[in-house]
């Protein structure tokens, strides 16, 4: 251990450079742990494959849209994938907090907003990959996109926006509770919101009244219906407006609260 000392002249770091550095690390972590991507990628696809076929009989219910159940069900993997993005974002951030890496970052001039944006930037990359895979598998299995190529692109944008909002939720949970266990503990709750929505049947075909009410008030229904409309209906302005509206609201709320939680967590004086 010996070398000459080095005097270093430092300028205040640029925000974009900070965001880039954190995002690069986040992506690098994901790329180097590819194995961890397999389950979140496969699980929604397996459910899609099974339910797409096993619930085929549901198309015989009067009032069911005139499409195959597989077409109807393809919207769900995008939402389930977004939930996995939420959990992995939260778990990664919580691990940094638990290991003390977060304190190391806190000792640099890194801004809280840059740390949050960088971390979420990495999650968006994962969300992009997932969404493209789900869409490709859906199309390969015979699902037609009623809104065409342009609609497929809008679908990807919407699903990435939804994943971004859920990633913000994961970050919020990590920053608020500081442990990976707490983040993962919320996963069942998030998963349940998908089940208690119009994920399996159109809302007008849900017979049990309390379930119908829950699905109507559950924003996840509108996220799913926004994506679904592009697949089975074409360009449905109302469904898209509600889908994008709720996705943006999710982003604004989760990122806003995550920003505040980040400030509280970065209790630098």
């Amino acid at each position: 251990m010996s070398a000459s000392p080095s005097a270093v002249a430092l300028a205040p770091p640029h925000l974009f450079e900070q965001v880039g550095a954190v995002a690069r690390r986040s992506v690098m972590r994901t790329v180097r742990q590819r194995g961890l991507l397999v389950f979140p990628l496969l699980f929604p696809l397996i459910l899609f494959a099974i339910n797409g076929s096993a619930l085929g009989a549901a198309t015989k219910i009067r009032g069911f849209p005139p499409v195959s159940y597989r077409d109807f069900a393809l919207a769900v993997p995008f939402i389930q994938g977004a939930l996995f993005v939420a959990v992995s974002t939260g778990t990664d951030l919580a691990r940094d907090i638990e290991s003390g890496f977060f304190d190391r970052l806190a000792l640099t001039p890194l801004r809280g907003s840059a740390l949050l944006a960088g971390q979420l930037g990495g999650s968006v990359v994962v969300a992009c990959v997932q969404s493209v895979v789900y869409l490709a598998v859906g199309v390969a299995s015979g699902v037609g996109i009623a809104s065409g190529f342009g609609g497929a692109l809008v679908l990807l944008v919407l699903s990435i926006l939804i994943a971004f909002g859920f990633a913000g939720l994961g970050a919020l949970l990590a920053l608020r509770f500081g442990t990976g266990e707490a983040v993962q503990g919320f996963f069942p709750l998030l998963f349940v919101t998908v089940f208690l929505s119009s994920s399996s049947l159109p809302r007008n075909l849900i017979q049990i009244s309390w379930f119908h009410e829950v699905a109507t008030y559950n924003p996840v229904s509108y996220l799913i219906e926004g994506i679904r409309s592009l697949i089975i209906t074409g360009w449905d302005a109302q469904a898209l407006a509600l889908g994008f509206g709720f996705a943006l609201l999710l982003c604004v709320l989760t990122l806003g609260f995550a920003g505040t939680a980040m400030k509280n967590r970065l209790v630098r004086t």
């Binding site: 549901a58 349940v192 208690l196 399996s200 017979q207 049990i208 699905a215």
Partner: peptide, 10 residues
């Protein structure tokens, strides 16, 4: 809840 409630029309 999701299967018995949500899919009862099946």
């Amino acid at each position: 809840a999701a299967f018995a409630g949500g899919l009862s029309r099946i």
